[in-house]
Design a protein around this nucleic acid. Structure first.
Lengths: 402, 402
DNA sequence: CCCTTTTGTTCGAGGGTCGAATAATATTGC
DNA sequence: GCAATATTATTCGACCCTCGAACAAAAGGG
């Protein structure tokens, strides 16, 4: 149940019913393809006559194509309908501290091209770089229909101003990516926080989320982000600042966090935290025979060391896993979501950390929780695919009524 | 943006547009009354002709009544329309550990009758008691249209089974109130958690929430409950277990909580916690001259003592306020809601505890928050009024489309 | 008394879905 | 081979809804 917002509502016209049913049919074609008109009528509840009219419109607008004849045990053979992947192309951009990925995807979220550029330290330089590269990218891939550009950013996005407010890992503040990109490409640009992008990716392309209304996507990298979905909708808050559970204090006298406070969850459970644990443990021994400092390992090194049964690396990961559990227990208690999906390099050591997380969550939950805690499929590129979903939504999401 | 849930969606028929616009008009009449048809057309964006048809229907069904003529500087005088409060009566029931309140409200949420019964310790006895009293209550107030019965419960409600799962303060588990009440009254019965009821009360009758999509209602009594509203909708989670932030652990070695765990937020910041703080502080001195134990004070006593500047009571309240701040900081960081409304006896000492809460939240938030933290109007009976909203929603909320 | 302004109603046009009827195809049984 | 049956897809009139123009009703001003 949603109250009608009398400060901004949408009245219905005679076309409203068509808009609603059209989107339902389009979604059914997307997820159930190949599918015949008769089947669409059956599983939508609309009349066959109505389905015919709607599909006629969708075919005319090239969202849907007629394919081969299907097989029926008796009677006239059905004509299969497919989603027309060629109808539109979407550009997805995933900005990360070291490297930024630009990819081209079709309507089904399949990537047909991909390239990477270095992420410049200075935001102005980066925006200029990116604009150039995207323009070249479009020239290189002359598709007729570009639907838009989705951008995933490792920081908070203000949806009112459509600007990046703060990205601690990049050291950027108040950056406008949207306007320059829109000016150079003439395309619609939508920006989104990385954790939210992961949630959108799961929502639109995930295997675990059909019919799911409440889940959380937890991104664990240099920091920790939470993409929260309740009632089937992303929680962004009035300014887009919702989802910063990574900066909830779990200990007032804890280690210093990038945000300036002490003892944030992400200061205990991020990749950075694990690297610090390892560095502290090897502090005395981290000099080689020539008494030179060995460089601090990366988180990837740590995973490799742990796989090789390096006891201090294992210990660092275990500690990280413990604190992941501490924070996840908070989310489980507070939201009781159906699923929490963990995204990040750390999932490569899931066999070790998964049980630790689950044990800690169980210990700290007031009652046995129904929440499944699962690692994301890392090969699915959730951040990047989420940017595709960001644009896809415009055509496939429920229309805004009332 | 909401993805269409293909496991349970709603197709649009020709009547869908009417349903949407009808609800918009009805809500406009509710909030802007008295209002003329011409004004309705202006502030809805619908044609005057359409408004005429819709209001004709609403008048016929007695949701709306025509009232006096209005005044216009020029031209034909407008005819005012009002919401017909007499159209329906709603029974609200607020179950609390000691006492249960039964009230009768009109469509505007005004209470026209009210009575109280003791809450029996045993749930079976209570359900029988309540059914009898509600039946008598209805006989005593012979209204033609009873729309339904809303019930607020101090515990978690499973919406799938429509049962009370667990109420720690009552010691009840797995209680079915809905079926017996529906059988004895023949009316629609809806049950809801107390914190969620407070959120609904704010949403539908509040002064702070028009146009607000993200806020949290925090109930502080024997325990702590959070009624969370995001994207303009109550967050209940798949089973209704969402909103248990009161049982988030803030210290593993903390005091024992009613849920069985140690160190839950509510074990630090509830009324019970404050009473415990006071009891501990006066442990050595809590015997009178005859060396007899003075009974442990109630939270009301504590508020009275603090008002009289009793240093130990003030200290206990301050400590409670500090920990309220700790938990609220978590909510502010994670949700960044526009408003957090605090409900409970503790708001009577708002001048003292308000500043403490705000200071702690400020200290623990990664960036200056935009969240307003305000005390609820205690005379508004938020729990009770929320139960009215629960039934009201059926007619005034946005219809479910797609 | 007529003109202007505003409110509220009437009515045909246009868009949408429904449901029955019809056309188009396959398969099965005889 | 042919009729009966089953299934798919389209066509068409009935009905519902909103729109927008025209019209009736009602007040005030010069």
């Amino acid at each position: 149940m949603r109250k009608i917002d009398l400060t901004s509502f949408q009245i219905a016209t005679s076309e409203t019913a068509r808009d609603i049913n059209r989107r339902i049919v389009l979604d059914l074609v997307r997820t159930r393809q190949p599918i015949s008109r008769a089947d669409l009528a059956r599983c939508s509840g609309l009349q066959r006559s109505t389905i015919s009219l709607i599909t006629e419109q969708l075919i005319e607008e090239q969202w849907v194509t007629e394919g081969a004849m299907g097989h029926a045990p008796r009677g006239r053979k059905p004509r299969f309908l497919h989603l027309n992947d060629e109808r539109a192309r979407i550009i997805g951009i995933n900005v990360r501290p070291a490297v930024t990925t630009i990819a081209l995807a079709d309507l089904s979220g399949r990537f047909v091209a991909q390239e990477s550029i270095g992420t410049a330290a200075d935001s102005k330089t980066f925006v200029a770089d990116l604009s150039d590269r995207v323009r070249d990218f479009i020239r290189l891939h002359p598709q007729v229909f570009y639907e838009g550009i989705g951008v995933s950013l490792p920081g908070r996005v203000d949806y009112a101003s459509q600007r990046l407010v703060f990205a601690p890992n990049l050291g950027w503040r108040d950056v406008d990516l949207k306007t320059p990109l829109e000016l150079t490409t003439g395309l619609l640009v939508e920006i989104e926080n990385a954790a939210n992008a992961c949630a959108l990716s799961e929502m639109w392309f995930g295997r675990h989320t059909e019919g799911l209304h409440d889940f959380i996507s937890l991104t664990v990298s240099e920091g920790i982000g939470t993409g929260i979905v309740t009632n089937g909708q992303l929680v962004r808050g009035p300014t887009g600042m919702a989802g910063e559970f990574g900066h909830v204090l779990i200990n007032e006298e804890g280690p210093l966090c990038r945000c300036g406070n002490r003892g944030c969850w992400e200061a205990y459970a991020s990749n950075t935290a694990a690297v610090n644990y390892y560095a502290q443990a090897t502090n005395g021994t981290r000099k080689n025979s020539a008494n030179r400092d060995i460089p601090v390992p990366t988180f990837d090194d740590l995973l490799r060391l742990a796989a090789q049964r390096d006891s201090k690396a294992v210990e660092a990961l275990d500690r990280m896993a413990h604190y992941l559990g501490v924070g996840i227990a908070m989310l489980v208690t507070g939201f009781a979501p159906s699923v929490i999906i963990i995204v990040g390099e750390v999932t490569r050591a899931w066999e070790r950390i998964g049980p630790i997380i689950k044990r800690v969550v169980e210990e700290r939950s007031p009652m046995p929780s129904m929440t499944r805690i699962i690692p994301a499929d890392d090969t699915a590129h959730p951040r990047l695919r989420g940017t595709i979903a960001l644009i896809l939504q415009k055509h496939f999401a429920a229309p805004t009524t009332a």
